[in-house]
Write a protein that binds this DNA or RNA. Structure first.
Length: 113
DNA sequence: GGTTTGACCCGTT
DNA sequence: CAACGGGCCAAAC
């Protein structure tokens, strides 16, 4: 593979995008979890950062990434939490009456282990 | 090359 | 239970 073989964006963002892309339907990952997989314990903010800058051309599955509490991101991100929730529900992700994702059921267990 | 930012996480008040 | 602050890290300005 050449240095510019039509790959993703450079930097550790690419790693984040790849991890997110590996999350199967019906599962969700947390920022801290992804950060830990990348070898950045405590770097949850950096992951969220990559998501903010996330280029749409990658068809990001960022809607499967939530915080550790299972709460969706602020409204101004996905065009409304309602939109993100609808996407997750379409993937058979169940929500608790609290409005949070049932992390115990859908929390991704990592790429492979 | 220092400063600012950001979709976080956790403990404490 | 809700609000506040500190810590942590990498990219953009």
């Amino acid at each position: 593979m050449g240095p510019e073989c039509g790959k993703f964006e450079r930097g550790m963002f690419a790693e984040v995008y790849e991890i997110v892309a590996q999350v199967p339907e019906g599962s969700v990952a947390t920022y801290g979890q992804i950060a830990a997989i990348l070898g950045m314990p405590g770097g949850a903010r950096t992951v969220g950062w990559a998501m903010r800058q996330a280029p749409e051309r990658l068809h990001l599955l960022c809607h499967r990434v939530v915080n550790a509490t299972g709460v969706l991101s602020p409204a101004h991100v996905f065009g409304g939490q309602e939109a993100q929730r609808a996407r997750l529900e379409a993937e058979r992700v169940t929500f608790l009456p609290d409005g949070r994702i049932d992390m115990k059921k859908h929390l991704w267990r990592g790429p492979v282990k």
